[in-house]
């Protein structure tokens, strides 16, 4: 009778085995993620003082936050600029990557090569490269400015003749001006969309064809709804990626404050506000998209 108490049922056993498999993450999350996060909350309301055998914290209230918002000369400007530029670029990245993914999903000659080239930016986006290219950029812009101006002007004329609303024209021109960045941000969303497009069951297309649906109808009635959960995945990915990318102005400014000038408290307060802004945007955007997404289950 006593022995039975220690014997586990099969499902209990599997339950415990499950915890065993994921235990590294539980440990890591607690020690290398949750603890530092709580600590950074503490840092943001304190002043950090290094002593001979470690460091001390002095409670200063919301002084760090106040310094970041009212005293620091650059924070407000970088904060609003970074956030608005990312919000503006999301629709163009999503549309572009979805379009490219559906093109790359078709059968044509040289498809493997084209795909290999499109995923090249995944490799080429390195933090160091961004730092060095600042110097480079000046050289390239002086050389190419004439070309860029010319193409933007002709683009504008083209759209003006189509008599589209003004805000659409300026948005497209802005997106076209940022084409290299657009391509860089799109590399992984394209990958995700492509994988999704390939996983749409073929019977559905066959069925639609038998019922006499046109390609346009098939796209909007079958492909688009089945892919729609991936829009959520991709929007979240883009937001996270661009908010933490090494080329980001605010991110490099915060790192510079930390390691260049050693004001830990203020930089942590800045990161916290930045994180709060990202979370808010993610929640709002996620909520809006989630309501319009179709799940097959």
């Amino acid at each position: 009778m006593r022995r039975r108490m220690f014997r586990l049922t099969l499902s209990q056993k599997r339950n415990w085995a499950g915890y065993l498999w994921v235990s590294p993450f539980i440990i890591g999350f607690i020690f290398f993620f949750l603890a530092p996060m709580l600590q950074s909350f503490r840092f943001s309301v304190s002043e950090l003082i290094f002593t001979t055998e470690g460091y001390d914290l002095k409670y200063v209230g919301i002084q760090n936050f106040r310094y970041a918002v009212t005293v620091d000369p650059n924070f407000n400007q970088y904060f609003t600029e970074t956030i608005s530029s990312i919000l503006v670029s999301i629709p163009s990245v999503i549309m572009f990557s979805f379009f490219i993914a559906s093109v790359l999903n078709q059968e044509f000659r040289g498809r493997t090569l084209v795909r290999a080239i499109f995923f090249l930016p995944v490799i080429l986006t390195a933090g160091v490269l961004h730092q060095l290219e600042v110097e480079d950029l000046m050289y390239l812009t002086t050389r190419d400015r004439a070309n860029v101006m010319l193409s933007t002007a002709s683009l504008r004329d083209f759209f003006m003749e189509m008599s589209l609303p003004r805000w659409i024209i300026s948005y497209v021109i802005m997106a076209a001006g940022n084409l290299p960045q657009l391509i860089e941000y799109s590399a992984i969303p394209i990958l995700i969309f492509l994988a999704g497009l390939q996983s749409v069951p073929g019977q559905l297309y066959e069925c639609a064809k038998l019922e006499g649906a046109t390609g346009w109808e098939t796209f909007w009635k079958i492909t688009f709804p089945l892919i729609s959960p991936l829009f959520l995945t991709n929007v979240i990915f883009i937001i996270v990626y661009s908010f933490t990318s090494p080329g980001n102005q605010l991110v490099s400014y915060i790192s510079d404050l930390t390691w260049g000038r050693g004001i830990f408290g203020v930089s942590v307060a800045m990161s916290l506000m930045y994180f709060a802004a990202i979370s808010l945007i993610l929640l709002v955007v996620g909520f809006i998209i989630e309501r319009n997404v179709f799940y097959m289950e």
Binding site: N15, W16, F25, F243, V251, I254, S267, S271, F275
Partner: peptide, 28 residues
């Protein structure tokens, strides 16, 4: 594996992706 808290744990995995690394590097 089916175990209690699996959904929560998976949510935490996604959470680690969303938090900018700048925020936890200083304490780390």
């Amino acid at each position: 594996y089916q175990f209690r808290g699996r959904g929560l744990l998976f949510g935490l995995v996604v959470f680690t992706l969303v938090v900018p690394p700048q925020m936890i590097t200083i304490p780390l």
